[in-house]
Amino acid sequence: MIKMKYEEIHEMLDRYWEGETTLEEERKIKAYFKAGAIDERLRPVAPMFQALREEQAVQLATKAKTTTMRPQMYIWAAAASVALFLTAGWCLFRDVKEVKTESPIALQAPKAQPESQEKAVVEAPIDAIVQQEKIIPKTVSPKKKNTPIRSKPQEIDPETAQAMAEIKAALALVSSKLDKGRNEAVKGASHLDALEKVPKRKEG
């Protein structure tokens, strides 16, 4: 709290208006008016120092820029999503279509090119082979259509039987490849285990 006599502050104020006060004296005057206990005779000039105080409090606002999506951006985001969805859908559709176009070749191969039939069946993806298995019952003779194929394989016509045999061969080939891959992975894992044991032996 600034305790100043009226005479003291009045004399200082006179010099202030003349521009003859020091910075320190001017700070004292401001502090006096800020304190609130203002002499009635000095009240008329109090707004001057309140104005200065308020002006001193003005600060440069630090704006936090927030990125908000404008309506136009929402439209573009939606368009991009749709485009992405359509592209993904087209890619999936294309893959399925390729599988479907390959499977009839594999199925028909025995008729057109007997010498290349094995290759065609082997190269067909697993999905295509499964697809072929689904198609096979359709080729079964109408007389035997209620009879399960696997329970009575001797009733299947020779052409279908040949196709099934080829499919089984292909599945066996795929299965053997998978086994081989799994064996290699087990072998690699055992090597890693052996490597991990080396430092432990040294430490021991």
Partner: peptide
């Protein structure tokens, strides 16, 4: 009233 005076000074 005081605010008016302060604003007038500004």
């Amino acid at each position: 009233e005081r605010n008016d005076l302060v604003n007038r000074v500004k």
